[in-house]
């Protein structure tokens, strides 16, 4: 089946893409560029790096802009999926939704309206299993956003590896943090994965952080040979 993947450039949508490529034909990536940092639906830090990620994967990217206003951004998403349907003949959409019924319900309704399949290969997967799978599969993801106590500036830019995962799981026990960021506690950006033809090298970055809320902004990055 020809599929388009809703792609934010974070760990979940990249893992969903990886899974979809193993069983079906992914023909494009679909991203929404939200100007609202608190978008209800769409991951925001470094979303503009999706163009470089798409190039690294070797897939065309449909990138639509949205003001990120609750519910109105769904119309923008529908427009993007409709475009993927007409330009790349997608028959289905793949998302990285894990636990959010809010997100899943809205995307399901859009797909139903457009008569395309909707797949959520990570749906209800345990957060710990998801994080460990990302590391075991050889993804290089960095923490590009923190939005909850006690996460602080030193977390930004760190690679998601075994010690980081173990600490996040510990923080779930002590502080109720959702280790994979399901509650919006962390955001990630994927710089490399097994199916990337090239990896992303960050050459300039900036950290903007106020206590327990901050982002790692990639100012400049290049594709380099693996």
């Amino acid at each position: 089946m020809n599929l388009g993947v809703l792609f934010s450039g974070g760990k979940d949508s990249t893992l969903a893409l990886f899974k979809a490529q193993q069983t079906d034909t992914v023909v494009c990536l679909i991203s929404l560029l939200s100007s609202n940092e608190e978008s209800y639906m769409f991951h925001t830090p470094n979303i503009d790096i999706t163009r470089l990620q798409a190039e690294a994967v070797g897939l065309p990217l449909i990138q639509e802009t949205t003001e990120g206003v609750k519910e109105k951004e769904l119309i923008d998403l529908e427009r993007a999926i409709e475009k993927a349907k007409s330009v790349y003949n997608i028959e289905g959409v793949v998302t990285g939704a894990v636990e959010s019924v809010y997100q899943a319900e809205r995307i399901q309704k859009i797909c139903h309206g457009l008569q395309v399949w909707c797949f959520n290969p990570l749906w209800l997967k345990s957060q710990e299993a998801l994080l460990r799978e990302i590391v075991e599969d050889g993804f290089h993801a960095i923490i590009s956003g923190i939005f909850a106590y006690p996460l602080s500036e030193e977390w930004l830019g760190r690679s998601l590896d075994e010690p980081v995962i173990n600490t996040l799981i510990q923080l779930q026990k002590t502080h109720g943090i959702s280790p994979s960021g399901e509650g919006g506690e962390i955001e990630t950006t994927v710089l490399d994965a097994p199916f990337f033809k090239k990896r992303i090298a960050v050459t300039d970055s900036e950290i903007v952080c106020d206590k327990y809320s901050g982002v790692y902004i990639i100012q400049k990055a290049d594709l380099v040979k693996k």
Partner: peptide, 15 residues
Amino acid sequence: QTSLGSCEFCLPLYS
């Protein structure tokens, strides 16, 4: 009918 569907609808039951 699809492998991705099996992932979404059977694996959560399995866990």
